[in-house]
């Protein structure tokens, strides 16, 4: 078979994309403390260190609290915004939607510093809560983008039919619209969760004395002897991501199969 240049390009692309990720587990199980070939021997020490590390445990817990809250908040806000922008006409709609979507193109460092200025001015103490606010601001535009697609593919007459058959506007939303946009909600929640989990700049600026996972990892990168443990942590995160993604995709596809909708692209 001829190796066309396009195939070569695709191959190189995948190598660059995944080689570093493949190296993570390789060094996570390597008994040498220096990240270099040749490999020395097999060990589980780094994972043992990892699970014994209390600061890391706390950082992980904080990150999960932030990410789950962000995910719920931005998806909820996204549902309202997407519903409004796909179904209703109101004056200033384009402007309002533009402003909501703006964080998508603003540099994070600008978001972080301006939020910091505002929070200090209002006198709100920096905490996990302020990070959640910052992350929600960042993740909501992504949530809206995903949910907009889900809402706009809904046939309007479905809700009119339910209304016509005696349901109220609210029960129509609950019985018809919500189940049909569930795949979009799953996508949105997952995306917001991921955005929040690995976000560094805003978290670093707004967390105050608290630590999140990215902040902790960044602080440990200065100590060469901690690197193998970070590799072990990275390995765990990769496995967790794959499991999460696969689960979400499973539910998304099941949702699609149930409604017979056309697959318009998911995660896998």
């Amino acid at each position: 078979m001829k190796f066309s240049s396009l195939k070569g390009y695709a191959f190189l692309y995948l190598v660059f994309l995944y080689a570093p990720i493949v190296l993570l587990p390789v060094f996570a199980f390597n008994s040498g403390t220096i990240i270099a070939f040749p490999l020395k021997g097999f060990t589980l020490d780094w994972f043992r260190d990892l699970f014994a590390n209390q600061t890391l445990g706390l950082a992980l817990k904080n990150s999960l609290i932030i990410a789950v809250s962000t995910s719920i908040l931005s998806t909820t806000l996204g549902v309202f915004a997407a519903r409004a922008s796909t179904r209703f006409k109101f004056p200033g709609k384009t402007g309002v939607m533009g402003l909501i979507m703006l964080p998508l193109v603003l540099p994070e460092i600008i978001i972080a510093s301006s939020l910091l200025v505002v929070l200090l001015a209002v006198g709100m103490p920096l905490s996990l809560f302020t990070v959640i606010l910052g992350h929600t601001l960042m993740a909501t535009p992504y949530a809206i983008a995903v949910l907009n697609a889900a809402f706009s593919s809904l046939d309007r007459s479905l809700e009119e039919a339910a209304y016509d058959l005696g349901e109220t506007k609210w029960s129509t939303f609950r019985l018809i619209i919500l189940p049909l946009v569930t795949p979009g909600i799953i996508s949105s929640a997952l995306m917001s969760f991921t955005i929040s989990l690995d976000e560094f700049i805003v978290a670093f600026s707004l967390a105050g004395k608290e630590t999140t996972l990215p902040i902790y990892i960044f602080s440990q990168l200065r100590f060469p002897k901690q690197i193998p443990m970070i590799m072990a942590l990275g390995t765990c995160l990769v496995v967790a991501s794959i499991v999460l993604l696969a689960t979400a995709e499973y539910f998304r596809r099941r949702g699609l199969a149930k409604t017979g909708a056309k697959d318009t692209g998911g995660f896998l």
């Binding site: 007459s157 039919a161 016509d164 049909l180 909708a261």
Partner: peptide
């Protein structure tokens, strides 16, 4: 939802 009418929509609007 309070009118004594019901509608068959052009797209049928079957709840999928």
């Amino acid at each position: 939802n309070k009118r004594p009418t019901n509608m068959v929509f052009q797209s049928y609007a079957i709840f999928p």
